[in-house]
Design a protein around this nucleic acid. Sequence first.
DNA 1: GGTTCAAGGATTGTATCCAATCCTGAGTAG
DNA 2: CTACTCAGGATTGGATACAATCCTTGAACC
Lengths: 215, 215
Amino acid sequence: MSHATHITAGSVVLAELRRAIATGELTPGQQLVQESLAERFGVSRVPLREALQVLEAEGQVVHQVHRGYFITELSLPDLIEVYRLRAVLEAEAARVAVPLLTDDDVEALAELAARIEDASEAGEVGAMIEANRAFHFTLIDAAAMPRLSRLVASLWDATDVYRSVYYGSATNRERVDHEHASIMAAIRNRNATTLIGELDAHREHAVAELSAIVR
Amino acid sequence: MSHATHITAGSVVLAELRRAIATGELTPGQQLVQESLAERFGVSRVPLREALQVLEAEGQVVHQVHRGYFITELSLPDLIEVYRLRAVLEAEAARVAVPLLTDDDVEALAELAARIEDASEAGEVGAMIEANRAFHFTLIDAAAMPRLSRLVASLWDATDVYRSVYYGSATNRERVDHEHASIMAAIRNRNATTLIGELDAHREHAVAELSAIVR
DNA sequence: GGTTCAAGGATTGTATCCAATCCTGAGTAG
DNA sequence: CTACTCAGGATTGGATACAATCCTTGAACC
């Protein structure tokens, strides 16, 4: 029996909340009224609160006793810190992963890069976000450091609120495609130093664009 | 995060559980039966589960649907990964913090180092663990990167289960004191490179000892 | 007009109760 | 003797009900 077979109300609500945050349906600063959300998802407040507590631990929402849960508002210093920590951790992941990459891994990465491009040209923002995440985490997971993957994932989650806005721009989507091509080239060459440089540039461009959005 | 002024049943239970884990009262692999714990803390199962969910998000306990919560068992690869991630993140913290350190910070660090030594000689393991954590996080917090502090804290928490065993040994306590002296010297000289080297050595010795314990 | 303060409703925190699932162990068949 | 089956209790997941706290609103007072 696998874990996924046990669908619990709390996990369903958690997934729904994640989606709502990622799509921008729930906007930063907004209060999450427990009764309304519970009714909307067709569950009681108990599993709803369970999901909210998980999101709080991840920093996606903030909690104030007797006042409630609110979607986290990312400040500019916050955003910059998230990307700085990503730089540190993803560099480590790349360093470890490159020597471990199998040909199958590289193949999978190339295919994901292609899927991103397709979604990008079609303007399918949701599909692009998903494929993009799969692309980057295929590389990160290749380092075979599960805790590292989890930490980086939580940092990605922290900026999910703004990701849909970022990919909404065709200019941004096009630049991302070019950067992914450079990243793939470094991966194919098994050159960790170059790869880390490309990843850093990739992130720098994103943080520059996002800085404008946050304000 | 909840204001300290408003103590909620869940937060009390959470603190108690943390203490019980840190002191080794709850041992790795052990099941946490909700009813018993709730009764022991004098609360219902609702706030207890709330605390358990927080600990699960932090990786201190694991959860299996319809089976319950268990104290996490740290595998050797896990332990090594935790310390490797700490090395990466704490090095970054040190790099950022050193130029920002005020004389007051250095003073506070020196005082904490002294407190650690006192507790070490007196064999007060609990006090030593607490002062040691305060010492290291005074340095880390000086980097003024709150998310970085949180990530590192979660990595420290992950090995809390074994910390009391580690500090139970007088040999270990004595070595730690010497290492802290070297760390303080590097801090006083505002030499980030030396400091990072000392911190790395400090951690390497700990992971070597802990590896033996895990097995 | 501005400030203080006290209801009352709105919202969250917690306890209690019921439902769903798991685990144990006795019994049975092979 | 071993493997399987299937109650019955033990334990967790979730819903409802109640208590504690907060927030708004409006009136009294300066």
